[in-house]
Amino acid sequence: MSVLFRAPSLCLRFQTSFAAASRLSSSQSGKKFTKKHEWISVENGVGTVGITDFAAEQLGDVVFVELPDEGTEVSKGESTGAVESVKAASDIYAPVSGTVTKKNVALEEEPGQINKSPFDKGWMYKLKVKDEKELKDLLDASQYEEFKKENQGH
């Protein structure tokens, strides 16, 4: 498969409306976010990882996902897979270090779930968090919203 455009991250390279960028969704509550637009929700030491609704909107219709296999050890900030859409492709980065315990195989059959439900059915993988202290380096929902506003159009 050839990719015409490969972005190193979802660094707000695409324009979006201010309203879309500034809304705070109840599904974001309790989640932590990276500046590359991944999210993680941790319960009992297991993190569920995905990309944000903002990232999904910027990518457009997702047509392919590459996810890490179960048992894969990942380090915070390391590429763990990719998302490809009709507009672009982008790497997915680990928000924290850990070992992948499960991947959302349904996304391989229906990658559009990322667009329809990025915080629920569109989750990408789960991992056993190696060090929960790494979560303190991530943004909470309100900090993430402020980050998007400050970086609008960059």
Rank of each mutant, 00 (worst) to 15 (best):
E73C: 06
R23P: 12
S85E: 05
A7H: 06
A21K: 02
V42E: 02
P8M: 10
K136S: 14
A19G: 07
E150A: 00
V3S: 13
R6K: 15
G47N: 10
E132A: 02
D91W: 11
L4E: 15
V86F: 14
E43L: 02
G112I: 03
S97N: 09
K130C: 04
T99D: 12
F5Y: 11
D61M: 07
V86E: 09
L138K: 09
W39T: 04
S27Q: 05
G153N: 10
F147T: 02
K148V: 11
I92S: 06
P8W: 13
V65T: 06
Y125P: 03
L135G: 05
G153Y: 07
T99Y: 03
D69S: 13
K136L: 09
S25R: 09
L59R: 01
K133A: 14
E78T: 01
K31L: 02
V65L: 05
A89D: 04
V3N: 11
L67E: 03
S97Y: 03
V42W: 00
A94S: 10
E108D: 12
T48D: 01
E150N: 04
V105E: 07
R6G: 15
G77D: 09
S27C: 06
V83F: 02
L139T: 00
K87A: 03
Y144I: 06
A89M: 06
I40N: 00
Q15P: 15
A55V: 01
T72S: 12
Q58L: 07
T34Q: 02
V83I: 08
S41F: 12
F147K: 11
G77L: 06
V105D: 08
E38I: 08
K87D: 06
K102N: 08
G50P: 02
I51G: 01
E78W: 00
P111N: 05
V86P: 09
A88I: 05
E108N: 12
T16F: 13
T48Y: 00
S22C: 15
K31H: 05
G50I: 03
K31G: 01
D91H: 10
A7L: 12
T34V: 08
E57M: 06
L135K: 05
T34K: 02
D140M: 06
S26L: 11
T52A: 00
N151P: 04
E132R: 00
G47A: 11
Y93M: 12
K128M: 07
G98H: 02
L24T: 08
V3M: 10
S25I: 05
S22Y: 13
S117H: 04
G45Q: 04
V83S: 08
K133F: 11
D137K: 10
F14N: 15
T80S: 09
F14Q: 12
T80Q: 05
A19M: 08
